[in-house]
């Protein structure tokens, strides 16, 4: 019983992460499905004493990376998770859209780190195990990702001011 609830929770997390990686609901669910099939086939390789979540995330992440290599040029239809949340006010929706667009422009490696730490609330250790990178690398990607995100969310306002100023000068 506990196990079933645990896996259900992991599946939800995996779907969020897959959506972050693929930006398409269909592609995300394909990825999760493939991940679970792999996990099932390799259940006996789960190392003793290790929790299930990082293992599942690592399978999903590696599948995504290898698919990216194959389909580098084919981009699925963009899907904004914010659009699925009806109750947000117009301002909130704009803000959520802005942050998602900004995150989408981050390099893949920074986006993955930011999602695992900020959205999934994982420890640095867990996230570094999933991504198979040293904690130092993870921390520098996280710092760069957050800073890039911060700057790009400030830019639109600055750009708008410039345009307005230009109009006025003419």
């Amino acid at each position: 019983m506990g196990d079933a609830a645990e896996i259900t929770a992991h599946v939800r997390s995996l779907r969020r992460y897959a959506l972050q990686l693929t930006r398409s609901r269909d592609a995300a669910d394909d990825l999760v499905q493939e991940c679970l099939a792999r996990a099932l086939a390799n259940a006996s390789t789960l190392k003793p004493g290790l929790p299930v979540r990082p293992w599942l995330f690592r399978i999903l992440h590696n599948l995504h990376v290898s698919e990216q290599r194959k389909l580098r040029l084919r981009r699925a239809t963009l899907l904004d998770p914010a659009e699925e949340r009806v109750p947000a006010s117009q301002d909130e929706r704009l803000e959520l859209r802005a942050v998602l667009d900004a995150v989408a422009r981050l390099p893949d490696d920074q986006r993955s780190v930011l999602h695992l730490v900020a959205v999934e609330g994982m420890s640095y250790q867990e996230a570094s195990r999933i991504l198979e990178i040293p904690i130092g690398t993870l921390m520098s990607r996280l710092a760069r990702g957050r800073e890039t995100l911060r700057r790009s969310l400030q830019q639109p306002r600055a750009a708008r001011l410039q345009v307005v100023g230009g109009c006025d000068a003419r």
């Binding site: 969020r16 959520l96 998602l100 959205v119």
Partner: peptide, 14 residues
């Protein structure tokens, strides 16, 4: 920004 990102992925309407 982290908070906004979490909100965007809030799972209510998943």
């Amino acid at each position: 920004n982290d908070q906004l990102l979490r909100s965007a992925f809030a799972t209510e309407d998943e």
